[in-house]
Each structure stands twice: as structure tokens, then as C-alpha cells.
Amino acid sequence: MLAIETKNLTKKFGDKIAVDKMNLEIQEGELFALLGTNGAGKTTTIKMLSTLILPTDGEIKISGLDIIKDRQEIKEIINVSPQETAIAPNLSVKENLEFMAGVYQIKNKNEKIKELIKVFKLDEVLNQKAKTLSGGWQRKVSIAISLINDPKILFLDEPTLGLDVIARKELWTVIEKLKDKITIILTTHYMEEAESLSDRIGIMAKGSLVDVGTAQELVEKTGTKNFEDAFVKIATGGEL
């Protein structure tokens, strides 16, 4: 079954077209990376797919549900870890987890929180206020929180942006553990991140989805030496 399906998905802000007639299919359990230069339309796409903003035109189906008619049902089965660490700063890590469990009205709240603490190894920072955590820990907590409702689909918007190499690698390990269990849509600026983690990669440029494939397929298709060169060639239309 398809986790995500879009048909001619379009978003306009006034005269500006942010996303232009995007057709995309993502399978259940797939880790799909969305790459693109700044302003390519990645974040706008994620915001539409995650019910945050409405499309101007076109269709979105999430697990077979319509983004407009079945908005409330979709909200129950998705979650997001936004670009900026979206956690309550004056609450401890445990309180953040409890707060979001309350937002999703999780029935087996305590068990779910214990499970996330174990998976993300949050014991050592559990009672620490979120604002006092390092950037790496904040991202980790942000991703842990986004799994509180056992989402079928998880959106990770630039999950490792601004992190040092160690923190980034640690988060990669966490993301890899989630692979196959849930569908993940990841946006990133790091080529090696997309290449190493994702099953398929979609490249966006000027609001359009220009190409989709595995990293290997895109390298072969463009006749380049590595994925970074393939990305540059696709994103610039071969100008560079």
C-alpha cells in the first residue's frame, strides 16, 4: 500500500509557485529523502503532506486518506520533527514526553514513555530542562517526542542541521533503527545523509520534483562520479 500519494500537488503564495504539480508515490516502510537547494520547495511540501498548510491545487492521500476530508484522522497517524527543535524549553525531558502523550491522548502513556526512554537512551537527561540540553540531545528528544503516537508516517525536517559529526552519526543510528518499521520522509542538505539513510531520493528544484530514484540510479542516470555531482547536475539542470 502507498503511504503517500500526490497528484499534481501545487502550492502558490500569491503569484509565487512554491510547489508545482508534484506527482509522488512513497511506499509503506520506505525512507524517502527529499533533497533540493534552498527555496526548492522541500519544507512547503512537508508542510502540505503533514496537514500544516493546505495545497492550492492537486491531491494528497496519506495511507489512502484524503488530506482535506480526512484531516483529523491523518493527524492521528503522522508526526513530525520540525527543522527547529520544537520542544517546551522549561519542561524536563520526561515532562516533554508526558505533555506530548497528553496531546495525542495516548492510553498506555507510561509504557510508551518508558519504551522511548530506552530506545533513545534518555535516562541521563530525563529530569533535565529541555533548554539546558545540547543541540544533539535536543534533536534526539525532538525525534523521540515525534514517535509518541506510534506514527505510521514520520516527517523529519533537516534532523541533523547544525549538529557536530558525532551527534549526527548518533542520530543516523537512531533513524536507521526506525527504518522499515515506519515510513520516513526526510529533508536534508547533507548528501551523505540522504545517500546513506534513504531507500529513494527525490530531488526538487524551483518547486518541481525533478528526479526520483536510488542514489545509485541517480548517479548512473547522470553519468557522474558520485552522488553529490549527480545532485548538482540534476538540481541545476546540467548548468554546473
Binding site: 503533514s50 520540525p82 520544537a86 517546551a88
Partner: peptide
């Protein structure tokens, strides 16, 4: 802090 983005999706 984008907490409202997270809550907006909830």
C-alpha cells in the same frame, strides 16, 4: 521554538 508547528500537526 516551533512548538506550535508540532502542535499544529497534532
Amino acid at each position: 521554538t516551533s512548538l506550535l508547528i508540532r502542535l499544529g500537526i497534532s
